[in-house]
């Protein structure tokens, strides 16, 4: 006999899925739309829908359903607005803002970096941030976005080229 998958209609199982995926999918949407409030709203609505469809979605398909549903909601709801990422840089290596690497102050460089990331297209930005900030592999990003690894690598390379174009001039060689 085939072992039965846990039912998403069981609250316990549903909560488990929620805790497992809510944070990562919210970040993913946030990197697309740039508004945490909006991202949370989108992801929460997708989870409400998951509950309503709990009888028709198998436990193992829940992850891909959530990512797909969020992406669709994002495409429907978000008019591609310019993103304002509010990353915090908690790691401060040097108390002194001078660095021999940069032609400008470290703080200024970092602010320019954020700016440059914000200027990337949605496609490149989501891949770049999932890779660099969330430390996801290209394979994982490919699964999330439903693209091939090759396509992810292309987007990543393009993002890096654009960031170098924007910031290369500030770095001492």
């Amino acid at each position: 006999m085939i072992e039965k998958e846990p039912s998403i209609c069981e609250e316990e199982n549903y909560n488990q899925l929620f805790r497992k995926y809510y944070e990562s999918v919210t970040k993913y949407i946030y990197y697309k739309c740039g508004s945490l409030e909006q991202a949370e709203d989108i992801v929460q609505n997708a989870f409400v829908k998951l509950w309503q469809l709990c009888a028709t979605i198998s436990f193992s398909k829940a992850k891909s359903y959530i990512y797909k549903a969020c992406n669709n909601l994002f495409l429907n709801e978000v008019k591609h607005q310019k993103v304002v990422l509010k990353h915090q840089q908690t790691v401060v290596k040097k108390t002194n803002n001078e660095s021999p690497e940069f032609l400008i102050e470290v703080d200024e460089f970092r602010s320019k970096l954020k700016n440059a990331i914000n200027q990337l297209s949605v496609k490149e930005r989501e891949v770049f941030l999932l890779s660099r900030v969330e430390q996801k592999t290209y394979k994982e990003i490919a699964e999330i976005t439903g693209l091939t690894v090759k396509a992810i690598e292309r987007r990543m390379s393009k993002a890096l080229r654009e960031l170098r174009d924007a910031l290369g001039g500030e770095i001492r060689i």
């Binding site: 919210t26 946030y30 970096l113 900030v133 969330e134 890096l160 960031l163 170098r164 770095i171």
Partner: peptide, 19 residues
């Protein structure tokens, strides 16, 4: 250049989310 951009990018943090 990219080595530094990469290093600095990895210092960025994602939003804090209250699950």
């Amino acid at each position: 250049q990219l080595r530094i951009i990469n290093r600095e990018s990895q210092l960025l943090e994602g939003p804090i989310i209250d699950v």
